[in-house]
Design a protein around this nucleic acid. Sequence first.
DNA 1: GGAACCACGC
DNA 2: GACGTACGTGGTTCCA
Length: 875
Amino acid sequence: MNKLVLVDGNSIAYRAFFALPLLNNEKGVYTNAVYGFTTMLLKILEEEKPTHMMVAFDAGKTTFRHTTYKKYKGTRQKTPPELSEQLPFMRDLLKAFNIAHYELENYEADDIIGTLAKRASKDDWEVKIFSGDKDLLQLVTENVHVALTRKGITNVDTYDLAMVNEKYGITPVQIIDMKGLMGDASDNIPGVPGVGEKTALKLLKEFETVEGVYESLDKVSGKKLKEKLEANEEDAYMSKKLATIETNSPVEITFEDLVKMEPNYEEVVTLFKDLEFASLLDRIDGKVEVEKEEVKDIQVTVVDEVTEGLLVSPSAVVVEVLEENYHLGEIIGISIVNETGNYYLPTSIALKSNVFQEWAANTKKEKWLFDAKRAVVALGWGGISLKGVTFDMQIASYLIDPSASSHEMADISKRNHGVAIESDEVFYGKGKKRHIPEGSALAQHLARKAASINELKPKLEEQLKQNDQYELFEELEMPLSIVLGNMEMNGVSVDKEELEQMGEKLGEKLVSIEKEIHELAGVSFNINSPKQLGEILFEKLNLPAIKKTKTGYSTSADILEKLKDKHEVVEKILLYRQLGKLNSTYIEGLLKVIHKKSGKIHTIFNQSLTQTGRLSSTEPNLQNIPIRLEEGRKIRHAFIPEQKDAVILAADYSQIELRVLAHISKDENLINAFVNDLDIHTKTAMDVFHVKEEQVTSQMRRTAKAVNFGIVYGISDYGLSQNLGITRKEAQEFINRYFQSFPGVKDYMETIVEEAREKGYVTTMLKRRRYLPEITSRNFNLRSFAERTAMNTPIQGSAADIIKQAMVNMALEMEKRNLNSRLLLQVHDELIFDVKKDELEQMKKLVPEVMEKAVELVVPIKADVEFGDTWYDAK
DNA sequence: GGAACCACGC
DNA sequence: GACGTACGTGGTTCCA
């Protein structure tokens, strides 16, 4: 059977334009609408597989509707130039895809679509229409279906007769009558003033059509409504006419012109490349021989004996570890590129060579790497020391723009027009297909990587200098990567037996709670399945469903909290979840990652990931070990010093973000609070609630704390309302009162958003950068999010700068003093050490001192120190 | 293998 | 009034 797909081109383009941030390509051409439009096309081609297809566009400004009503579409804003400049690209793309497009003088895209849909359905074709405009629903019939864009662009709701009825309770043809009565603000169709969708639908259910309404006007209930209808009869009829899609427009194009042919993939590829649609290129990969970026063979010397002559300074070095977790992986090969040549060193030869080892450990021999920490740690496990690293390409790329689409070597190289490298995923394969290619291919791949580092180092350094970030790079992040490498390599000792015992107890408890839950529910089911749980709670037990998710009922903790007193099973489920989380993530999770060789836990800190400058921690994540609830906190009993002669020392910054805020905003009230060492949440409560200190209740303090939390994390009034369980309006009121009390903060928030709009980015105290292109978006959500980010990133990012500086300074100080204590972990505002008992007195003073002096603020910085036999006891 | 949901920390 | 709302990591389920 024939299947015709008709696309409302203008409507989809508009949707895409407003839904996506203003992307542009290297030539400065905006591409967001083209991008969205193209993803929609690809999706249609993949999912609908039409035999015939056409995209209709509006022709000009005036249409036959303007003769009926001059003001038709009169209030519509001009198409933004950023969008109109993209329309030609869409036509080019359609041509490349071999998809017909059509426009008709005096008619709108709707009319073309309506006309063709009617003709096709006469011949019993299947027709599907894509648009963002609800008006098109009037075309729905047995074999004509309409797909309307939902949020985003590629998400659509498909309407057939039943769907229209379900949504509106009327037939498709009555959509026209609905528009006639309610009008359409966006098209400037008047309708009957005071009649909205609800009233229109009510009237139509009773009287079927506009005509029906006026024939039985005396039967309409409501005096005012009747008066309004009476006074606007003409407008109602005219509006109906305007809203009617012309299904007999003089469309000359024939179905033969619409036959869907194979795309001209060569043209598509060329266009995608021009537009820089890398991800879309991937999607059509396989359909066509996409000529890959020319990967040229380079001259590589395979070294069978390492000599001093080839290890000159500086050298670009690649130490390849295929495993993502470099604590576990083997080094599969080493390459070196320097002014004497390009070399590949088979692992076994390099690691055994004294010449190599001495060169690696020599701080005076300069080395340039990509993700140096990976190489340092991987070599470290083999007992080889790598020193003298002066340039890390990954960190440089991250500092230049943390939001860059990827910090993979192949992508960075491409972005900066360096040596073409295959991505690791392509070269090694992924998933089950991953393997190490044979020797000479591997030598080529690794040599290209080293050549890329060698080539791009000056370019990236130049960019760092232009951004005034060279000091941040050289004095903070580069030394920090060494500190982090040592922390990871050193690892954290855990009491395995302690964990196992806790696990056993938890396991028993879980079994008994599970049984209780099944008994209370009257049926056995998987409590860990939100789907099954939802069905039990909200269907079988008939508890009120407060919130729904995309796929079913929400069973999240905050929802269950509200249902606690409705059924005793709820509390058990919460407990089951809590203990289950502890057992699977923390007990079993941590036991799984105890390293076979060291018996310790070695996390990996990611230094080039977060948009704010914070670190993250993986395999395992040691930055989210429980603390809030006592049961969870007990996990910390298992984190112990390496030797008996030591303790765990934890030092945390007190309110570092709010102190940073005081510093950058220069708000007098906030500065005074910290200078006088007040309890900041109590102080905030006093100001926000206009009460004296002794009148601050715990509820008031809790609210104030949530407001401060909101300021620090950049949450919205909605976020605050969720945290406090209040309305959005009340939350906004708290924020307003906060700003009244701290006017300097308000000024700062306004200034920083303005600055972000002008410059396109914000910076932290130590010049870390975050770009916020969406701050000029016309999409309210995107823009608001960017604005909150502009306010928040300098705060959170500067706090990250400060603790990083403290870590570097601390490492220097400990080395200078020849201390045997070790830094184990960083948890955003907290440093955890393994401290030898004979160094305890010294460290207790030194750690907070170094932390407090990391940078100088206009307010004092405060760090608190605790220690104990385990991490649990360091409180 | 990936999406969806949930939960932990700061 | 819409829009859908701090970041990051990881476990489990469920569907392809």
